[in-house]
Nucleic acid binder design. Structure first.
Lengths: 261, 261
DNA sequence: GACCAAAGGTTCAAATAATGAACCAATGGT
DNA sequence: ACCATTGGTTCATTATTTGAACCTTTGGTC
């Protein structure tokens, strides 16, 4: 692992509930030597990716990240483009909808929206990377993304986050094959207990999935009727998002989606 | 310069009009060896900070940046908090208002808003780092920020971006001293031609400025009346933003601002 | 207020990872 | 078919990163 990766990984330890991280905590979280961590922190801070709280001496995510995010959004306004579609689908279904983009062997949340009409809600954290093997989005990504993804994911053991998580390589391969045929993915409590999800792939200009759109529903509310409603609208919405992002849905998948409708 | 800094600096070459950068262009922009740049690009891409367009082979800013920005905004919702205040001031004055945070020896735009009621507008680019010596925001930062800032800025030659840019170290020191007395900074066409600005400091919990709020006006519209109007509201707004960010305005500056009103 | 523990931070020889000149491959224009 | 340009790779050399040990500061306790 290169120096750059080690340093950038430090940034991934922030999450809600861990807003500020000290040197010692970073050491335990990253498993690296204190001196190494310290120099990396200093260098990240010098570049504005972190900032140090002078009182607690803890480190926080810095302003450079916001600036770069603004640049990216300006150059490639994915969030802005996708937001209204996600909101529309969320209110149409009354459930949580999220769009994620692939980031290596994970999915990185781009945006999410919850209709907030129910008392129980799916907790969704835009800070958290989604694993490919445990989520509906991940299965959709594996099915329609670059070919090397599935073998890469299977290189390591698949960690289980619930009792339902798929951890068997053979089973995962079967499921992914199935997703290729169906044109969408369904996962029941694979990542979080009591949450079931549907997901469909989003494409770039290369006919390879670059991300996914998903609906996450508390398992209790995932009735047959709800499943039907989601299946009826998800492919069309995925195609719409792909189109708005300047991508192209592969012809064979277009056919699958049309046949299902 | 460490490896991390070299790699992160690659990200700073993106700007409106340069959405995608190829290997060779990166090499010329950064002045580093092609092999070095290439490995850095690969590693940044592996971490989601860049993504490669498979058609053009060019690199774009990646999704990890958006995710981290969402995390930061959630942990420390500066943008969200500041946005309504900036919008209010912008519409009140009918001119462009921006808030920036310090990022090393520069200021990093956090948010800006333009009332858009005039035909001529100040161009403001949230992608661009603002120099401390040439902008009103920078002068406010130098005056009320950490003590080491001014000497650090004066270590290198001060580049001029307009004919009005302050490049003389002695003159800059005088101006900064002056800003300390006034409680705000005024710069006429120091960074961009035909733009004049007022700026006031924003404070963290350590009585040291962490950023600035500024009003940028086309020089033609910067009449005495406009100056009076800005001076009348800027300190109060700066105090409000500081307060909302959980900071404290130093007592002596509070007095200066009160006396001016 | 003296003591202690824990966290932050620094040093320097040893080791590892970064470097860059040269080379290869692919693309596109003439 | 040729050449020019860009993207990408190799491998010996070099310089940067590394980490055990050490120092400093902070905060709590008796």
């Amino acid at each position: 692992m290169g120096t750059i990766t080690k340093a950038l990984n430090l940034l991934n330890h922030f999450c809600p509930g861990r807003a500020e991280i000290g040197l010692t905590e970073f050491r335990t979280l990253s498993g690296q030597d204190k001196a190494t961590v310290h120099r990396h922190l200093i260098e990240l801070a010098a570049n504005g990716f972190l900032e140090q709280n002078p009182v607690t001496r803890g480190y926080r995510l810095g302003p450079a990240i916001l600036r770069l995010a603004a640049v990216r959004e300006r150059l490639f306004p994915a969030r802005t483009i996708v937001a209204p579609i996600v909101e529309r689908l969320a209110s149409e279904l009354g459930e949580l909808v999220h769009v994620s983009l692939r980031e290596g062997l994970h999915l990185s949340p781009l945006i999410h929206h919850d209709a907030l009409i129910h008392g129980t809600r799916v907790y969704f954290d835009e800070a958290e990377l989604l694993p490919l093997h445990a989520t509906a989005s991940g299965h959709a990504m594996l099915a329609f993304g670059p070919e090397h993804l599935l073998p890469d994911v299977l290189k390591d053991d698949l960690p289980a986050t619930t009792a339902h998580t798929i951890t068997d390589p053979v089973r995962l391969t079967e499921i992914v094959d199935d997703v290729r045929v169906c044109g969408f993915a369904f996962v029941d409590q694979g990542f979080e207990a009591d949450v079931s999800s549907f997901a469909a792939p989003l494409f770039g200009d290369q006919q390879e999935a670059i991300g996914t759109i998903a609906v996450a529903v508390p398992t209790l509310r995932m009735t047959d009727d709800m499943k039907r409603r989601i299946r009826a609208v998800l492919p069309g919405t995925a195609a719409e998002v792909t189109d708005k992002l300047g991508g192209v849905v592969p012809a064979h998948l277009k056919r699958i989606w049309a046949d299902a409708a």
